[in-house]
Design a protein around this nucleic acid. Structure first.
Lengths: 327, 327
DNA sequence: ATGAAAGCGCTAACAG
DNA sequence: CTGTTAGCGCTTTCAT
């Protein structure tokens, strides 16, 4: 391993000068720069990050703690995080903490131990682990009391979903609530209900316990067994897909017999058949913005607004009836 | 930050003894153990990993370099890697290097700088960056000359795909090759072709340039424009989905008019309509095994076989005709 | 079984 | 603008 010391000798300067050069901090003459540069390339020197971190007490690592990387929403988010952070010289340590946060503590510990620059997570751990004092931003599943957070306009999302479905002539709708993991998510559900009530549309509510496909499919079978809903508001595209699958099995036509609206707009939803009408939220953007926030936080920069709410929009595809085209 | 020194004072022993205790290395009396334990919990001590790594010259970080985390195959693989590594006290640094390996160098550098325990990657970088000397295992896209690798039995996979489709009465098949990223992947294609030739089945070949949905969809439109294939062998489930989408648009019935077989068996494929018949490869297992390998490598343990080939199997669903049910 | 001491590679005053 | 110095928190001989 080649160290700063060898570079210094090769370049005929002192360690300090080399250090100043590589960390772009402090003065170093043109002449010295060139000699150092030459030495570095000649020796193929790469600074040791452990040593630096030991000294400076902070690293360029940001933890990204996600409940389930196989839910397509999160890889998109991760990409956004990675994009921004990478451009700013930070690295992402990805951790799957599981939907029940089983592994959260492990990861938090490691992040502490490595002087991580911060952590981006879906779960606000501050109550459970007050001793962990890392710059933190919560994404997606943000609560009132969350400090820094980035999330979608779930209230609008839920309302739009209900609106769309009512406009398309819904008479009997099933509203599915996702696992209630955070206030921000629950808002969708509440907003849909509110709209349905206001428009005096008949509805029933159901509570999903999972984001796992197979679990959801079981729930869907149950929900669809004895009822003849003409419309479904799903809490995620994953949920919508499971319901569609079951609807197909039941021989229902979509959207003629029953229409359905998803939430998220994961990549896959446009490739299904029929293509899923859904509420788009920008996971990539969410990640990107969260990364921006954590970056500023880690640098101790001033933050204007602690919570960032991203807009959502309806994406019309094929699972919602055209107005008046049916019924 | 509480250090080993404070723990030592609190426990009334020396730093060395504490060090021996926390790194489970060397003798420490029952009595000392208890005092140290008490001190640690009292002070809420967590060892500083940078300091340790600086001294020992290795960390518990394993890099996982993937071409595209939004391709569902890779999150599954990542989960497998994470599972094993976490159980053994290692951490995963995930990097999206892009299909063209644009960011590979960055990540490799960082891994070097942090004394990473090793790297699991889809791309064999040893020729491009011979100076990077990290324990490495290649996954999925393994080549002849790759040192340590874990991959599927692509030869069998390709052959089975062709076999299934021929048995179901294929008369005119389109064989799509994925982007040729590695020998191991290309083998699928060659095996399918070989089988088709042997059975004197009429076929045409096409070459996909991408794993990006939209790109593939464009290709699919092109391929399906002027031809009337009755069967398609797709190089991945993603590809299959795009083709199915286009087939729907063209008003073709699946599998009556055209049957199609995928590759990978990503989670989504069972939730599409019709559910995709495909060749299953176990991404999770692949990751898990790769992790096992890297773990052993990082510990300098002896490895019996440098290349591990995982079995594949046909998963019958709804996009392949039943024998004799049609034609 | 334990402690003293040296040092990993780097940074940050400080003096010049 | 540059060099000297001290030391970050931990591990590891080597004595004892």
């Amino acid at each position: 391993m080649v160290t700063i010391k060898q570079v210094a000798e090769e370049a005929g300067v002192s360690k300090s000068t080399v250090s100043r050069y590589i960390s772009q901090n402090g003065y170093v003459s043109q002449e010295a720069q060139e000699k150092i540069e030459a030495a570095i390339t000649k020796l193929n020197f790469v600074p040791n990050l452990s040593a630096r971190s030991l000294k400076t007490k902070h690293s360029q690592i940001v933890g990204l703690l996600l409940p389930d990387i196989s839910n397509p929403f999160f890889p998109m988010l991760a990409k956004g995080v990675e994009k921004f952070l990478k451009e700013h010289g930070y690295r992402v340590l990805l951790g799957n903490i599981g939907e029940d946060n089983q592994f959260e503590e492990d990861y938090l510990k490691v992040l502490m131990q490595t002087n991580a620059a911060g952590v981006i997570t879906t779960n606000d751990f501050r109550e459970a682990f007050p001793e962990i004092k890392l710059p933190t931003v919560i994404v997606d599943r943000v609560g009132q009391k969350s400090d820094f957070g980035v999330f979608s306009d779930n209230l609008s999302g839920g309302k739009i979903a209900a609106h769309v479905i009512v406009e398309a002539g819904a008479k009997k709708v099933a509203v599915i609530s996702g696992p209630v993991t955070a206030e921000s998510i629950n808002n969708r559900f509440k907003a849909s209900i509110a709209y349905l009530k206001k428009t005096k549309t008949h509805y029933e509510t159901f509570y999903s316990q999972s984001y796992d496909f197979d679990e959801i499919l079981k729930e869907a079978k149950q929900v669809l067994k004895h009822n003849d809903f003409d419309s479904i508001i799903a809490p995620s595209d994953i949920h919508a897909m499971a319901y569609i699958r079951e609807l197909h099995h039941l021989g229902k036509r979509i959207p003629e017999d029953v229409q359905i609206i998803g939430y998220d707009d994961i990549l896959m939803s446009q490739y299904m058949y029929p293509a899923l009408s859904t509420i788009h939220q920008d996971a990539y953007e969410m990640g990107y913005e969260a990364a921006k926030l954590i970056y500023k936080l880690s640098l101790g920069q001033e933050i204007k607004s602690r919570q960032l709410q991203l807009p959502v929009r309806y994406v019309e595809r094929e699972t919602i009836r055209k107005r008046e085209s049916n019924e």
